[in-house]
Simulated assay, not measured.
Amino acid sequence: MTATTAEPGLRERKKAATRQALYEAAVRLAVAHGADNVTVEAVADEAGVSRRTFSNYFANKDEALLHGDRVRMAEMVGMIRERPAAEDAWTALSRTALACYASQGTLDPQWVEQVRLLRQHPALLSQQARVYASAERELAAAVAERLDDPDDRGLRARLMIATFLGAMRVALHVWLENADTTDIQDITADALAEAGRGFGNT
């Protein structure tokens, strides 16, 4: 491979690293000082870049704070599509969710709780709703590819995704309440098994 053909890949990796650094800086500052007290300038300084560089990646601080959600959802869609074709839809969703947690390693309950509360900030809720609505459509499309029965209106696929995300949210809350004695993967597996009883072999 020549230097010329390799350059775009390197450029994209550098851009992704800068975007991730800005996201992490925004979350650190928001958790430490509150979302209302964080400015774009402060995020740029924390990440070691200019204000202009920040604007090349995000329109505002709220968009930066929700970048992690967009990345996680996009990764989940990709992972579901890469699951073995023989897996039914709910199995593919469940195994993808557990694989995501496994790849994250040990989570700090206090940090997760702080970030969860941060996402409930009023200024973020409308943007968060748009992020999740888009992700739900993409997840439903990935699930629809695995359904044996016709689902012309996409009803079953969308119900499945709503149930799946609800189970994930409940599992996270239960884990936060019992983090000293439980493992998030175990709770998530149990929650998905309970929620998926009506979606077996789809």
Rank of each mutant, 00 (worst) to 15 (best):
residue 131 V to K: 11
residue 124 L to S: 02
residue 139 L to N: 11
residue 178 N to L: 00
residue 185 Q to C: 06
residue 129 A to Y: 09
residue 184 I to E: 04
residue 177 E to A: 04
residue 169 R to T: 08
residue 185 Q to Y: 05
residue 124 L to W: 06
residue 164 F to P: 04
residue 162 A to K: 06
residue 144 A to Y: 13
residue 174 V to A: 05
residue 152 D to Y: 11
residue 132 Y to T: 11
residue 164 F to G: 07
residue 167 A to W: 05
residue 134 S to V: 14
residue 174 V to Y: 08
residue 149 D to A: 15
residue 140 A to V: 14
residue 127 Q to R: 10
residue 134 S to T: 15
residue 181 T to H: 01
residue 139 L to F: 13
residue 155 L to P: 06
residue 143 V to S: 13
residue 167 A to E: 08
residue 146 R to E: 11
residue 187 I to P: 00
residue 183 D to F: 05
residue 168 M to E: 04
residue 125 L to A: 11
residue 141 A to V: 14
residue 191 A to R: 08
residue 138 E to V: 10
residue 180 D to E: 12
residue 163 T to E: 06
residue 170 V to G: 01
residue 137 R to L: 14
residue 186 D to F: 07
residue 164 F to S: 09
residue 143 V to M: 13
residue 125 L to E: 10
residue 189 A to H: 10
residue 169 R to N: 09
residue 138 E to C: 12
residue 136 E to M: 14
residue 180 D to I: 01
residue 160 M to A: 04
residue 177 E to L: 02
residue 178 N to S: 02
residue 136 E to R: 15
residue 166 G to T: 07
residue 189 A to P: 03
residue 144 A to C: 13
residue 128 Q to P: 07
residue 165 L to V: 04
residue 144 A to M: 14
residue 137 R to V: 15
residue 137 R to P: 10
residue 139 L to S: 12
residue 164 F to Q: 05
residue 170 V to W: 00
residue 174 V to W: 00
residue 135 A to F: 12
residue 133 A to M: 12
residue 190 D to E: 09
residue 151 D to R: 10
residue 142 A to R: 14
residue 186 D to T: 06
residue 176 L to D: 02
residue 177 E to M: 02
residue 157 A to R: 07
residue 133 A to G: 15
residue 192 L to C: 03
residue 133 A to Q: 15
residue 141 A to I: 12
residue 127 Q to N: 06
residue 185 Q to M: 08
residue 175 W to M: 01
residue 126 S to R: 09
residue 130 R to D: 11
residue 187 I to K: 00
residue 168 M to A: 08
residue 165 L to G: 04
residue 128 Q to N: 08
residue 193 A to M: 13
residue 133 A to L: 14
residue 183 D to S: 04
residue 195 A to N: 10
residue 148 D to K: 13
residue 154 G to I: 06
residue 126 S to P: 01
residue 177 E to H: 00
residue 132 Y to H: 14
residue 145 E to F: 11
residue 176 L to M: 00
residue 186 D to W: 05
residue 147 L to C: 15
residue 139 L to K: 13
residue 126 S to W: 00
residue 153 R to H: 14
residue 145 E to H: 13
residue 192 L to K: 07
residue 140 A to T: 12
residue 162 A to D: 06
residue 194 E to Y: 11
residue 123 A to H: 01
residue 195 A to Y: 07
residue 167 A to L: 03
residue 175 W to C: 01
residue 153 R to K: 12
residue 182 T to E: 03
residue 158 R to G: 03
residue 181 T to L: 00
residue 146 R to W: 13
residue 192 L to I: 07
residue 126 S to Y: 00
residue 150 P to S: 06
residue 132 Y to Q: 12
residue 151 D to A: 09
